[in-house]
Design a protein around this nucleic acid. Structure first.
Length: 424
RNA sequence: GGAGAAAUGGCAGAGUGGUCGAUUGCGGCAGUCUUGAAAACUGUUGUACCGUAAGGUACCUGGGGUUCGAAUCCCUAUUUCUCCGCCA
């Protein structure tokens, strides 16, 4: 959520930058918000003045009572009735304007960073790095969904029986590979100074709002309605919400957390070949890295996070590329996003395995995550997060890229974690 | 799940209808003293909104109510603690 004061003071700039995100009707919405805010201020002034008057009168009545002047007190009491009514009306007015502002404000996306390229969609993203050689596969190379059944390591049909499509059952060395990847990712992250946390995978409504999944992406989360809890779509939600309503000290920075959780996404509305095999699941495993940063440091940190994820892919020996997303392809809350995609050799396509973003104050404004600066003033912190990494597509690329005639070779870095060198 | 108790500022802990945004202690910050530090002493120390400012308003877990006036009384939700039950 953008800061109202910032919108007021930088109206033209806000409208121009929203254009880069292809946000429709920005001019109209921003002007309406500012106008409503002006009304709100006037309403608050009136309400506050009325309350001040009522408070003064109550004090007077108290004094009169104490000094035994009951009749005078009664006279004043009679006067307060009208004041109370006015108070109620003005309060309601203020509240309804505030609600109106809020309703509009949550529809406005974050402003893109000045380096974000313009563009409409995925085709306009900038490739900032392409790394590694695409492997030459044997003539009869198979896509991962055939390999998984050939070696009996992932059972999609069993998942359908137990739950439904998009909930695979990992078996034998397939299951072990999952565990190996999770441990590998967590070990690397902690070695880089991230503090490992194991958060709940169900969160309440407040947390959903805090990181912005609610209200707009309500339909994308599984909702346990009996207790009004949501299954997390990413560990970003609980880990970032740990800093909801928190005032930090400057010396607390940098705050680096990582965590493994299963992630749950309804993925309502996605069908077709993109969802085959491991390409798109309803439940999957992911290690997430999250930082709360000093605003002056956040872009340096973003680069560092991006480079860290790239290092993971290098260690796994997967060819990858890094994209800087254009305005039209960026997520709602992000100011700058790098996507990391691995080359899936049998599918002959890039698969997104990580998205690393700086949200600047967009999340922390809603979360009320602040710090005291050197002048003792409270300021909003910056929040950043990235996948490091999501498992399914990594597994897909590993299986496809490392396949031989009769086996799948495990990359060196993973062997100590797997306890085997090949799947055959 | 049943019965009872409780929730106050960074922490501890007073406050049971009026001048309480809240006594006090600890912690934090600034200063005095000191070569420096500690100790001691002095001062200061929540957040948000409105206002150029003076100042005003709101917040004592959340929501609602009683009252001229609520941290204080009532209702409700949540959480915590104790006892009982159940249980990985």
């Amino acid at each position: 959520m953008l800061q109202l004061n910032y919108i007021r003071e930088n109206k033209e700039e806000v409208i121009n930058r929203l254009a880069i995100k292809n946000f429709k009707n920005a001019d109209n919405i921003i002007n309406t918000i500012i106008e409503l805010d002006t009304n709100r201020k006037a309403a608050q002034k009136q309400a506050d003045d009325t309350k001040a008057e009522a408070n003064a009168m109550a004090r007077q009545i108290g004094d009169l009572m104490k000094s035994g002047k009951k009749e005078e007190a009664e006279v004043l009491k009679a006067k307060t009735g009208e004041l109370k009514n006015t108070e109620k009306v003005l309060d309601d007015k203020q509240k309804s304007i505030e609600a109106e502002i809020q309703l509009l404000l949550v529809t406005v996306p974050n402003l893109p960073h000045s380096s974000v390229p313009t563009g409409k969609g995925a085709e306009d993203n900038t490739v900032v790095l392409e790394f590694g050689d695409k492997p030459q596969l044997p003539a009869n190379a198979k896509p991962h969904w055939e390999l998984t059944s050939k070696y009996d390591i992932i059972d999609f049909e069993m998942g359908v029986k137990l739950t439904g499509a998009g909930f695979p059952v990992y078996k034998g060395k397939g299951a072990r590979l999952q565990r190996a990847l999770i441990n590998f990712f967590l070990d690397r992250a902690t070695a880089r100074g991230y503090n490992e946390v194991q958060p709940p995978i169900l969160v309440n409504e407040d947390s959903g709002y805090g990181t912005g999944q609610l209200p707009d992406k309500e339909g994308q989360m599984y909702h346990a309605t009996v207790d009004n809890l949501y299954l997390i779509p990413t560990a970003e939600v609980p880990i970032t919400n740990m800093y909801r309503d928190v005032i930090l000290k400057e010396s607390d920075f940098p705050i680096k957390n990582c965590g493994y959780t299963p992630c749950f996404r309804r993925e309502a509305g996605s069908y077709g070949k993109d969802v085959r095999g491991l390409n798109r699941l309803h439940q999957f495993d992911k290690v997430e890295i999250v930082q709360i940063a000093h605003p002056a440091e956040s872009y340096k940190i973003l680069e560092d996070m991006k480079d860290y994820v790239a290092d993971l892919l290098k260690e796994l020996g997967l060819p990858f590329r890094i994209l800087k997303l254009c305005g039209g392809d960026m997520s709602f809350g992000s100011a700058l996003t790098y996507d990391l995609e691995v080359w899936s050799a049998a599918q002959q396509r890039w698969l997104e395995v990580s998205s690393v973003s700086n949200f600047e104050t967009f999340q922390t404004n809603r979360l009320k995550c602040r710090y005291k600066d050197d002048k003792g003033k409270t300021q909003l912190a910056h929040s950043l997060n990235g996948s490091a990494l999501a498992l399914p597509r990594i597994v897909a690329a590993l299986l496809e890229n490392y396949q031989t005639e009769d086996a799948i070779t495990i990359p060196k870095a993973l062997v100590p974690y797997c306890g085997f060198e090949r799947i055959s």
